[in-house]
């Protein structure tokens, strides 16, 4: 931000100083109108800068999308979606990876969502501000920043080896659940905190118990915010590769998992495998795989926005 040159000179403390902070009328300043014009120009420049920053993101996204669509659409056929991987790119398909990703998503949600919401409710509604709750809070905040490969190593040691789950969907989903749990807890807490105090107090005044307040007042009001957090968390889970490679999700698999204890593969691993092959035809179907992954992600987000809008419309404060 530009300032008039006079401002840079040190000023004595006192009246002048405090007047400057409160915003001195500009006509009192040296160089009156010129200064005002410059200030306006700076403001306009700042606005344009912000607009440009916004456009960069969207432009990059559009270029990426256009590139992927151009490469991947010709090979994106029903056969591609309904076939197992193959050494022949024209026969290879994404079925095992797509079904594996959906299985993983469902199981991860099953573990992470109830646990995350319950933890958020406890921390916001029940926990007293003791050292224990503070330690837990700090730890959850830190866990949200731990690199995903670390969760993979934890999953490998705990679920795959110690608990003998092998490289199953269950081991993958539990690892992913750990990975996204902090995100769900944090967004649940923020959503709960945004529920007005007056609502709770009104319910208490009518004689509701704490659990009645949580179930009847707080959770419905916090639902839109919680849904956003959950979908963000699950979107992360479906795009993650590193922890799954670490726990040993497989690359070639030509059957569908029938139970949580079956081996599996997921979309990002299959895409990565195709991209790193020498044959250009595999690169094309990798692009088709990316489109499938994008469609899954975008439809999840669209569903989330729809649900959130519906939940919001029901709220009447």
């Amino acid at each position: 931000m530009s300032r008039p040159p006079a401002d840079t000179a040190p000023r004595p403390a006192g009246v002048v100083h405090s007047r400057r902070r409160a915003g001195v009328p500009t006509h009192r300043r040296p160089g009156g109108t010129a200064w005002r014009a410059r200030r306006k120009a700076a403001g306009r420049a700042y606005e344009l800068l912000c607009l440009a920053a916004t456009c960069v993101g969207i432009l990059v996204l559009l270029v990426l999308l256009a590139d992927i669509l151009r490469r991947g659409l010709p090979t994106l056929t029903w056969e591609f979606i309904s076939s197992f991987p193959s050494r022949f790119p024209q026969q290879a398909g994404i079925k095992a990876a797509l079904v594996g990703s959906l299985w993983l998503l469902a199981l991860t949600a099953l573990f992470a969502v109830p646990t995350g919401i319950a933890a958020g409710v406890w921390l916001e509604e029940y926990a007293r501000r003791t050292w224990l709750s503070r330690v837990i809070e700090v730890n959850i905040a830190n866990l949200a920043g731990v690199p995903s490969i670390i969760y993979g190593l934890l999953g490998l040691g705990l679920f795959v080896r110690t608990l003998q789950l092998q490289r199953s969907l269950l081991a993958g989903a539990l690892t992913m659940a750990l990975l996204v749990l902090p995100i769900i807890i944090i967004s649940t807490r923020e959503a709960i905190r945004a529920v007005p105090r007056s609502q709770r107090e009104g319910a208490y005044a009518l004689g509701a118990t704490r659990s009645q307040v949580v179930w009847g007042i707080v959770l419905p009001a916090a639902l839109p915010g919680m849904l956003t957090g959950i979908i963000l968390a699950l979107s992360r889970a479906i795009g993650e590769t590193a922890p799954l490679i670490t726990i040993g999700a497989l690359t070639f698999i030509a059957f569908l998992p029938t139970s949580p204890l079956d081996p599996f593969t997921v979309l990002p691993i299959q895409i990565f495998n195709w991209v790193s092959r020498p044959q250009p035809a595999f690169h094309a179907i990798a692009a088709s795989g990316i489109i499938v992954l994008l469609v899954v992600l975008l439809s999840m987000n669209a569903l989330a926005i729809y649900l959130r809008d519906r939940a919001r419309r029901k709220l009447q404060w």
């Binding site: 197992f84 050494r87 040993g248 690359t251 070639f252 030509a254 059957f255 081996p263």
Partner: peptide, 20 residues
Amino acid sequence: EAMAEEFQKATGGKVRVTVG
């Protein structure tokens, strides 16, 4: 992968071969 693909076909899909 190629061997797994063909072997699975040859067994009528009853043997499951996984390659990591």
